[in-house]
Each structure stands twice: as C-alpha cells, then as structure tokens.
C-alpha cells in the first residue's frame, strides 16, 4: 500500500473515532465544541509518555484515553450545568484553555511541538476504529443508548420516566472525551509529531460538523460524516484542478492553468454545511431511513420464506 493511501486510512480511522467521541454527547443533546481539547489531551499524554519514558504504544494511548476521559468526567459536572449557547461556549473555552496551557508548557514543547518516537502504521488505527464503531453501536442498542436519545428529545419527560438524566449526560460526555483522547493518542503515534497548532478551534468545528451533517440519530451518522468529509478533500484534490482547466477551456483560455487554491475545499465544506442545514437539518442519515432499509430487508426475507 502506498504511503499516500496509508496516510488517508490512518486519518480516516482517527476521524471516525474522534467523531464518535463528539457524537455521544451530541446524541444526548449536548453540543460539544471542545473536541480539539480532548484530542490534544490524549495526543500530548501519549507523546509525553512515549518520548520521556519510552512506554509501549498500547500503554501511552491507553493512558491518554483515560486522562481525557477523567478530565471529561470531572469537567462534565460543572460544565453540564450550563446548556444551550452556554454549553457551546463552555466547551469551546475549555479547548482554548487546554491549548493555551500546553502552549505555555516547557515540558510539552510549547509552540515547538514534540516528536513521538514510537510509530504505528495504518492497520492499528483502522482496527481500533473498528472496535470503537462496534462499541458505539452496542452502546446505542442498550437501554443506556435509549435514555441518551430520550434525553436529547425531552429532558423533563425523560426525568419523569425515572431516568437519572444528569448521570446519562455525564457518562456520555466522559466516554466521548475518552474516545476523543483515544483519537488523539493514535494521531500522535501515526504522525510521529504533535504540535498544539494542529488542535485548534477549527478542528473542533470540523468534527462537530462531521457529526451533525452525518446525522445524530443513529450510530451510522458519524461514520458517514467522518468518511465523507475525510475523503471529500482527497477527491477534490484530484477533481478540482480538472474542473478548473475545464472551466478555463470553456471561457477560451488555452494555456495550462495553475492548480486551484486549497481554500476552495473549505468553501465547499462550508457551502455543503449551509445547504444541509436548509434542506436536511437532521443530517444525512436518519432513523427513518435506517428503519425503512431494515423493514424492506426483513419483509423481502419474509416473502422468500413464504
């Protein structure tokens, strides 16, 4: 496998795990716009343990995941007292505080970043992403998953049904934080280098967009969203120059044109976001869609039996 595709598979796997980390709180009705903060916690924990103590990868990544999860659990109590706009701001602020703290930390390399000695190839993130996907599907099929989705729809009634909604919210937030940390740890080892600039506010925004555009009603949504928005830029990388030369030919420019600006890809992501929110705000994959597919399958199976 070429280095190019190995890199894409790694980043795809990491993005899927990261997206699930944001999906869990969002499916519970908590918009988490601080994803990059949790990812940075996992990445820097793994990088530090690997660089300073030479610990093996499963340990560094595991500890990174636990650290992000525990921090998520601890801040969930005060942070989830806020809701709506306040929650968005609080999670956003949390990520900025993490980034700012790391930037000012001599031990963690500050603005210079840190190199990570142990390297993992694309297979490991892909396998881990597979397990995480299975785990999230399992979680959503349990009563816990049911109460998560119920909390998303109506907190007051869910509480009256006997659900400890605070517990459900805190758990979803903390598990989500741990998954984002896991994605960070894998990132650190896959790219052998961490710098705080790669965990900026835009990263938090992107991952939330993956989840919301993919759809928050089922565990298929983040998978679709992360896959689509990781692969789309790569697709555009090859397609956009062709589009540009085609357009140039159309208006009668004969001489070869330079490749289009890299920013066009983000313009397209933004435009897709706006269009989706107008046309299909519930996201690409909805519950009704899955139910329909399942129903068609089971009814056709029944016909075969008959």
């Amino acid at each position: 496998m070429s280095g190019y595709w190995a890199g894409i598979l790694s980043i795809l796997a990491i993005n899927v795990i990261f997206a699930y980390g944001i999906f869990l709180p969002v499916a519970t009705g908590q918009l988490n716009l601080g994803g990059a903060g949790f990812q940075a916690l996992g990445a820097y924990t793994a990088a530090y343990l690997s660089a300073m103590f030479g610990l093996p990868v499963p340990v560094t990544v595991g500890v990174g995941m636990v650290v992000a999860g525990v921090v998520g659990f601890l801040i969930a109590f005060p942070i989830l007292r806020t809701r709506g706009v306040y929650l968005v701001l609080a999670t956003f602020a949390f990520a900025e505080v993490v980034a700012g703290t790391i930037l000012n930390s001599e031990t963690l390399g500050g603005a210079m970043g840190m190199s990570v000695p142990a390297f993992i190839d694309w297979e490991i993130p892909v396998i881990v992403a597979g397990f995480v996907t299975l785990f999230v599907f399992y979680l959503m099929s349990t009563r816990f998953g049911l109460t998560m989705r119920a909390t998303h729809d109506d907190e007051v009634v869910t509480d009256l049904m006997g659900v400890n909604i605070r517990m459900v919210q805190v758990c979803a937030f903390a598990i989500g934080g741990a998954l984002a940390g896991l994605a960070g740890g894998l990132y650190a080892h896959s790219f052998s280098f961490v710098e705080i600039q790669s965990f900026n506010a835009l990263v938090s925004i992107y991952v939330l967009l993956y989840v919301l555009l993919g759809g928050t009603q089922t565990a298929w949504g983040p998978l679709a969203g992360a896959a689509f928005f990781t692969l789309l830029p790569e697709l555009l990388r090859t397609v956009l120059p062709q589009v540009k030369s085609f357009l140039a030919a159309l208006v009668g420019i004969e001489e070869p044109v330079g490749p289009p600006d890299d920013s066009w890809r983000f313009v397209i992501l933004g435009a897709l976001t706006i269009a989706m929110m107008v046309l299909r705000p519930e996201g690409l994959i909805t519950r009704t869609m899955i139910e329909r597919l399942r129903f068609r399958r089971s009814s056709s199976a029944r016909e075969q039996v008959a």
Binding site: R149, A150, V156
Partner: peptide
C-alpha cells in the same frame, strides 16, 4: 410529549 425521534416501541420501552 412523546420523544419525536424514538419509535413507538422505544417510547414505550422508556
């Protein structure tokens, strides 16, 4: 006040 995104049976299971 049923949960709009839950199916009938899921609402009952709640």
């Amino acid at each position: 006040r049923l949960m709009p995104h839950l199916s009938v049976v899921e609402n009952v299971m709640l």
